[in-house]
């Protein structure tokens, strides 16, 4: 993982990259387009019993079962309410044993932007609502900041698995 991040940073420094920006809880976030597979309308999420709020459930993506993560809850906020523009962004993350496709629930998808490395600031030590290790950097777009997410960290498969099994044990032993 460490290497991956380093590689990401190097890429970041080398040339401007494209980012997909989306809104969640009134804030702007962005992820590199390379890991975005597709964006689908929110619907038909099957909830899994005894799961923490950050794991919303699973969807059928053309025959494959894909876990859906509630980013809002994952960042420590409330569960994302489903509205007219709610979407699921399908992302592919790399982990130790291969790739995992995951979906994240967002309030709205905005646009694809090109952000030059010069316009990316390092993440602040505090002040954001989310864990700093989730943040790759702060991109300046039109005088505002968008939070560039480190998807490998946010959707760390090991961490999610821990969350899932821990929640279940807590649930079963009240």
């Amino acid at each position: 993982m460490g290497q991956l991040i380093k590689a990401d940073m190097r890429d970041l420094a080398a040339e401007s990259r494209q980012y997909l920006t989306f809104t969640l809880g009134g804030e702007q976030f962005a992820v590199g387009t390379l890991c975005v597979k597709e964006i689908i309308e929110y619907g038909q999420v099957t909830a899994i019993p005894m799961m923490p709020p950050s794991i919303r459930g699973v969807i059928n993506l053309r025959g494959a079962v894909v876990p859906v993560i509630d980013l809002g809850a994952r960042f420590g906020g409330p569960v994302t309410a489903v509205g007219r523009r709610t979407c699921i962004v399908i992302l592919e993350v790399q982990h130790a044993e291969g790739r995992q496709v995951l979906g994240v629930v967002v309030d709205a998808v905005n646009e694809v932007l090109e952000i030059a490395p010069a316009d990316i600031e390092p993440p602040p030590a505090f002040g954001t609502h989310i864990r700093t290790d989730f943040i790759l950097g702060m991109g300046k777009v039109g005088g505002r900041f968008v939070i560039l997410l480190d998807i490998g960290r946010v959707l760390s498969v090991d961490e999610l698995a821990d969350l899932a099994s821990a929640a279940q044990h807590a649930d079963e032993q009240p």
Partner: peptide
């Protein structure tokens, strides 16, 4: 049977997923 995958691999009581005729996922 669709395997649980890495995220749900360690939970108990659920053996896997399947997809219903309606396209919905069932446990």
């Amino acid at each position: 049977i669709k395997p649980l995958g890495k995220v749900f691999g360690r939970i108990r009581g659920i053996g896997g997923f399947t997809i219903l005729g309606s396209g919905e996922v069932a446990l």
